[in-house]
Amino acid sequence: MEKKLHTFFQSGLLDKYILDETSASERLTVENFIDTYPEVASEYERLQNNLEIIAKATAIEAPTTILDAILNEIEEDNTPVIKLEKAQHSTPWYSIAASVVALLFAGGYYMKTQQNLDLLKENQVVVEEIFDLRSDIEDNNKRLDNLMDEFMKLNNPETEKYVFRGNDRAKDLKTVAYINPVDETSMIDVVSLPQLPEDQTYQLWAEMQDRMVNLGILDASQKKLQSVPYVKDALALSITIEPNSHLNTTAADSAVAEIDLNNKRNN
């Protein structure tokens, strides 16, 4: 059975199933493994949790539809009315007929010209909408590529998960670090950071044998998975509260959360 499970996990079918990229037969195979083996069901739950972590995103407002643009153009179209003055004296019938023909011709020409202008405006709106849609599609494709990249990093067996929990100075602080020493990548998921005064910031530090290395400022508003510099041979990571004026120095008692990297790597 262990060999069968090993072969299944190595096939990558479970990852494809999570991302909805399996065929009908592959989907039945995966679902059968999930129902039959607790190990597969547990791994399925873990992959779902990882996908949920990296899928944090704000809703993208849909672009204005072409129909709305055309309707707006129609509502704004006010065709002027030509006012005819009442004749004060009699006019020969052929003069009246000629005038009517001229007015009809002028009115028809004006309406045709106005229709052409309206069509040009509508065509321009359509072109702009198409460019907007193409831009949105490209942006969405980039977001999907980034999502896939982060998902693969989280699912890498070499990726270790570390949870920062705040001390008495920041009890509600919770942040998760994902570190892969093989690929030399680091990511931070800011779950919650207590509000600070405007003159203070949260900063991430790597503790080396002989010094502290600043890895940047943690922004409480950026509640999404974000990359941070990987520091080889770091013994620990810590989150500190520092004044805005101290971006490259840290006090001995400023740490509000720490994780030990050395112990976990040695286990």
Rank of each mutant, 00 (worst) to 15 (best):
N141G: 01
W93Q: 05
R143P: 05
Y162L: 15
R27F: 00
L235W: 01
Y94L: 07
N116S: 12
N262P: 00
V182H: 06
D77H: 02
A170Y: 11
E258I: 04
P197E: 10
L154F: 09
P181Y: 13
Q209S: 09
N123Q: 10
N140G: 03
D253R: 03
A251I: 00
E138L: 05
L144V: 03
A255W: 05
P229D: 14
V231I: 14
I54F: 02
L133S: 12
M212I: 01
Q48R: 11
T22V: 12
P194W: 04
N267Q: 09
L14E: 11
W205Y: 07
L235P: 03
R169M: 11
V125M: 14
L204H: 06
D20C: 07
Q88P: 08
L218T: 06
A236H: 04
A24S: 12
Q10G: 10
A41Y: 04
D168E: 11
S25D: 15
R211W: 02
L19M: 10
R134T: 05
E128R: 08
F105P: 00
G107F: 06
N141I: 02
L196R: 03
V228L: 08
I137A: 11
L71G: 01
A255I: 07
E31T: 04
R46L: 10
L225T: 08
L144S: 04
K232I: 03
K174W: 02
W205T: 04
K153D: 15
A236Y: 04
L204A: 07
T65D: 09
L235C: 02
L261N: 09
L19D: 10
V213Q: 13
T65N: 05
Y202L: 10
K232A: 08
I96K: 07
L120D: 15
Y17T: 00
T58C: 08
P157W: 00
L119S: 06
D132Q: 15
N155T: 13
E184T: 08
E150S: 15
I54H: 03
T201I: 05
I239M: 06
L84H: 06
K56V: 09
W205R: 04
D139G: 02
H6W: 09
I53W: 06
N146A: 15
Y44T: 03
N266W: 02
L119T: 05
D149L: 12
E158D: 14
R27D: 13
V191C: 02
P92F: 01
T91C: 07
A251V: 00
G107L: 12
M152F: 05
N50E: 13
F164P: 09
S238I: 00
P80C: 09
I137Q: 14
V40P: 11
Y109Q: 09
L51H: 11
E45L: 02
S221C: 02
L120G: 11
